[in-house]
Amino acid sequence: MPGYLKLDHLAKTFARNGQASEVLRDINLVIDQGEFVSIIGHSGCGKSTLLNIIAGLTPVTLGAVLLENREVNAPGPDRAVVFQNHSLLPWLTVYENVKLAVDKVFAGRKSRAERHDWIMANLDLVQMGHARDKRPAEISGGMKQRVGIARALAMEPKILLLDEPFGALDALTRAHLQDSVMDIHARLGNTMIMITHDVDEAVLLSDRIVMMTNGPAATIGEVLPVTLQRPRRRLELVSDPRYVAARETVLRFLYERHRFVEAA
């Protein structure tokens, strides 16, 4: 479905101590169903704010977010978020963390047994079924993030929002999880929006890369379609001229045209 999610003239101004600071200005973007879109930019450019606006966690100052042509301005399980720091509840086991979401979203729609099967299906999807009775403190960072993804997927969201999901992980774990996300995207065909500051990650995973200009009053500088066919394998891509070209375009945008000036 084309035009599944529309960001229509979004703007965000934070008022702090009577001083207004414009974070985002005039963001326009149309995302199709099943598309994987990355939003990349230097830190402080407001990309996390943008994701929070789509999630409904932050209200907009101007403009609107339209999902299936209906305005959304409050958070809901149709836009599940995978948070940067996993945000699992430490007093619940892996299973119970996913259960919290499933019980809430599917209350009255699925029987107890169906909900159990659905929880396990999602844990198995991220290869975490074996750790169902562990608490978040007992598993590694990568595993926590897997559970975070399972919890988000278990809500059957229309859009999966990933807020720098692999930022806190080591390079090897990150690569594993990127492959998992690609695999899930291929299997389920979800619409996904990912915030990242990793150029390779953006090129590898995305159908389109949205590049943000620097704040204050950041906006979309350029949108790069990545036409590499799927499934993508990182080893084969390294020497693929289209991959190299896409990577170069993003790098040039970030480091030539919109160089990050360290807090002046």
Binding site: L57, P75, G76, F83, L100, K104, V105
Partner: peptide, 18 residues
């Protein structure tokens, strides 16, 4: 209570009692 937990609750639309 970390903002993250509140965000999780908001995304799940937990009501006040929950």
């Amino acid at each position: 209570i970390p903002q993250d937990y509140r965000n999780v609750a908001e995304v799940l639309r937990l009501n006040t009692v929950e």
